[in-house]
Every structure is written in structure tokens, then in C-alpha cells.
């Protein structure tokens, strides 16, 4: 009788399980408990192993996302010797006090801009929106510095999109 490779695998796995798992259980746990697991080994079906393998694959895939946290772009704001940090992907609005008055920064849809500022020339407002790591906006009169930090720092584009 011909056996497909799958059959061979299945029989091997099944034998392995019924011999080794039983031994391990008998050694490490209660012997009588091990007898509970005696009968079903013979009744396992190929689909069980498919489900097991898929489950292990899902767990392995879920580990991949560990790395995703390091490079998330953050918005760092320096004002008056203190530092604030915000997540670029969360919409927020925050106000910072400086020597001239207050400067309000807004994060919306993964972009940052200065919404309002008490400084005279309003260059920071005119700078508009920034969204890429490495880009920054500064409000010199009010001493507020806004910088996007992240893994993919871009060299070009800084001067065009931002202004003193």
C-alpha cells in the first residue's frame, strides 16, 4: 500500500506523541493523570496538526510586531528648558508658554503645525505643516522648538518646508 508523505508524517508524529508525551507526562506529572491522555492519542486526526501549525504560525507572527515600537515617529517640543513628547499618529493640541506669550501646536492626521502664536512675525505659523522625521519648526521669539523624531530621518526637504 502506497503512503503519501503526509501519511508518513502523520504516523510519525502520532507515534511520537503517543510515546513521548506519555512518557513526559508520566515522569513529570502524576502517573494517573497521564492515563487520561492515553486514549486520545490514537484518535487525533490530520486536521489537528494543521490547526496546531497554524496556531504556532500566528504566535510567531505576533512576535514580529515587537520591533514596530522603536521607530515610531514622535513629536518633541522644547520650550523654556523643558521637553514635551507626543505621538505623531494621535491628534492633539497643546499650548506652550514662552517669553513672548503662548504658542499652540496642533497634531492632526500625522502632521504638525503651529496653530497660533503670540509672536510678532508669525513665521512659525507661516511654516505650515510638517510630517516627516527630521523636519522641524521653530518659533525664535517665543523659544519654542518643534521637531519630528523617528527612524527614517530625511536629509532633504528640511529647508523648503520649514523656515526660521
Amino acid at each position: 500500500m502506497m503512503r503519501s508523505p503526509w501519511d508518513v508524517w502523520y504516523i510519525l508524529l502520532n507515534n511520537f506523541l503517543s510515546i513521548h508525551v506519555k512518557q513526559v507526562l508520566a515522569r513529570d506529572f502524576d502517573k494517573r493523570l497521564a492515563t487520561c491522555y492515553d486514549a486520545p492519542m490514537r484518535r487525533l486526526k490530520p486536521g489537528d496538526f494543521v490547526i496546531l501549525i497554524i496556531s504556532v504560525a500566528i504566535i510567531l507572527l505576533s512576535m514580529r510586531s515587537f520591533g514596530e515600537f522603536s521607530g515610531k515617529p514622535e513629536v518633541r517640543v522644547r520650550a523654556g528648558g523643558k521637553q514635551w513628547v507626543y505621538d505623531l499618529s494621535v491628534d492633539t493640541r497643546a499650548t506652550f508658554d514662552g517669553p513672548v506669550g503662548s504658542t499652540t501646536m496642533e497634531i492632526e492626521g500625522g502632521k504638525v503645525h503651529v496653530h497660533d502664536s503670540d509672536c510678532r512675525n508669525k513665521v512659525c505659523i507661516a511654516a505650515g505643516w510638517i510630517s516627516r522625521p527630521g523636519q522641524w519648526i521653530i518659533c525664535l521669539p517665543n523659544d519654542v522648538f518643534i521637531l519630528i523624531e523617528g527612524s527614517e530621518i530625511q536629509e532633504e526637504g528640511g529647508a523648503d518646508d520649514t523656515a526660521f
Partner: peptide, 21 residues
């Protein structure tokens, strides 16, 4: 629908994965 191919072991694993996810 898949009783022929899986035993209660597979059922239990699938159920636990679904529940935990």
C-alpha cells in the same frame, strides 16, 4: 463542518485561539 478531519483537540485549540485573539 470538519468533524471528519479534526478531533476535539483541534476544536479546543481553534476555540482557544479565537477566544484569545
Amino acid at each position: 463542518f470538519a468533524r471528519r478531519f479534526i478531533s476535539l483537540l483541534g476544536v479546543s485549540i481553534a476555540g482557544a485561539m479565537a477566544s484569545n485573539i
